[in-house]
Design a binder for these strands. Structure first.
Length: 418
RNA sequence: GGCCCCAUCGUCUAGUGGCCUAGGACAUCAGAUUCUCAUUCUGAGAACCGGGAUUCGAAUUCCCGUGGGGUCACCA
């Protein structure tokens, strides 16, 4: 359907670490470009020297790398200053712009309308030119403003679709007039509804809006994060929700973009992450946990102390109980940290009985262990949760007979010594 | 406040005039399975912002309200 070749871009400014809502925009640009066998471009918009944050650019790369949003071309605006200067001069010569206190200001037309058909909802958006004001295109420090630089770049880089947040709608008439001043066609403009926080305000750091890297560190899988982000304002056309990036590329259409703002729901992301964890093989899950463990410090890095076979068995037991990778540590803390469990007097009596009965076991199997546990339950008319407390410090957790079997008789009896 | 955008269960959404006594998912609640907790399975409650108009017929089209959001920088 698309005659021209599709070229999309994500144009972040290195003024901080983008949160998940911003990253979603990158995902859509990526999906759309790949869907049409087009080109996905990263352009760092670093024209604001005051708000520049050291290290932000590296974080940007880290995010895209982790999510697998590989870009085909890469630019940086601060390296293109002469280009903007040249174009500003051209407007100056044509008297379409004028000097103002060392800056250059663009003359906006004052009659008629500026309008375009937006890619979201395929609707006409129209502004009266009488409401528009002349605006700065080149600052007195020689750097261009966003409103100017991105237009020049989008044209020179032959961007076919500008897919960006809705916060740019109000300034779009400015952009369109710049295109006109140069007699350029403007790309197809697609303005995505903003992702909202729980209070229905634009998602921001104030909501504790996290970046993709925060989710990575919290034990989320990149596939789950991509999947959830995509669903925030886009629908594949049927009831499917769990999709790989490849499937999303296949199904992605601008028509599937919703025109209302979605609210970010951490609960659903968490559920989805659990789904992705359960889809993993034990080997895959194991290697992800090991990577995580190696990045950690302190108590949580103790994964390596245990025998690999034991770890794999624990992973198997933990898999259906994890919503994030980090949950593994909470589930196995009592083993990894060998922490002392505070017991009541009654629990101590039970522990002693357990010690006797388990010690008397000749075959150390799940079934045998379970029948011992059951007999202790009956004799003392207590619930299973009491035994979990005694062994793990928690009233519930990984299935006890299996865990005890995995750990071995010696260790278990040792842990019951008071 | 001016301008612009938006409006289906608590949340993400399906729905493009009759298939809607509005479907799915998360969350919530109840039940089944079970050594605890999960997983899995079954079920329940839960929505078309209001008012007009068009039409034989509107969640779906139009208008007016109301509500929410965005934007009004030598930031992006």
């Amino acid at each position: 359907m698309q005659l021209m070749s599709v070229r999309t871009r994500i144009a972040p400014s290195p003024t901080g670490i983008p949160h998940i809502g911003t990253t979603r925009t990158a995902l859509y640009n990526y999906l759309f470009a790949k869907k049409h066998h087009g080109t996905f471009i990263l352009r760092i918009e670093d024209t604001d020297r005051e708000r520049f944050v050291e290290g932000a650019e590296e974080k940007l790369y880290e995010i895209f790398t982790w999510l697998g949003l590989v870009f085909d071309e890469n630019y940086k605006q601060s390296e293109r200053l002469p280009i903007y200067k040249k174009h500003a001069d051209e407007l100056l010569e044509k008297d379409l712009a004028y000097e103002d206190n060392g800056a250059i200001r663009f003359r906006m037309p004052k009659d008629g309308k500026t309008e375009w058909t937006d890619g979201v909802g395929d609707k006409l958006i129209s502004f009266e030119n009488k409401d528009q004001e002349d605006f700065i295109i080149l600052k007195s420090d020689g750097y261009p403003t966003y409103n100017f630089a991105h237009v020049i770049d989008d044209h020179l880089m032959e961007i076919s679709h500008v897919i960006r947040g809705q916060e740019f709608i109000s300034s779009t008439p400015k952009h369109i007039q710049i295109y006109r001043a140069f007699s350029w066609e403007h790309p197809i403009l697609v303005h995505l509804p903003l992702v909202l926080g729980n209070d229905h305000q634009k998602l921001s750091k104030r909501h504790g809006a996290k970046s993709a890297l925060d989710y990575r560190d919290d034990g989320y899988l990149s596939d789950a994060v991509n999947n959830y982000m995509a669903l925030l304002g886009w629908n594949s056309g049927d009831d499917r929700e769990l999709m790989t990036v490849e499937e999303m590329i296949e199904l992605f259409e601008l028509e599937g973009l919703n025109s209302a703002s979605p609210v970010f729901d951490p609960k659903k992301l968490e559920w989805m992450n659990g789904e992705y964890i359960r889809q993993l093989s034990v080997d895959e899950l194991s290697s992800k946990l090991k990577v995580l463990a190696s990045q950690r410090s302190g108590q949580n890095s103790k994964l390596g102390d245990l025998d690999e076979k034991i770890v794999d068995k624990l992973i198997e037991l933990a898999q259906s109980r994890m919503k994030t990778l980090n949950d593994f540590y909470d589930l196995t803390k009592f083993i990894l940290e060998k922490s002392e469990v505070e017991l009541t007097d009654q629990e101590k009596i039970i522990a002693k009985k357990l010690l006797e009965k388990l010690g008397a076991l000749e075959t150390w199997t799940t079934d045998e262990i379970l029948s011992v546990l059951r007999s202790v339950l009956e004799e003392n008319s207590i619930k299973m949760s009491v035994l979990y407390k005694i062994f793990t410090g928690n009233p519930h957790g990984l299935p006890l007979p299996q865990v005890l079997e995995i750990l071995g008789k010696e260790k278990v009896l040792g842990s019951l010594q008071l």
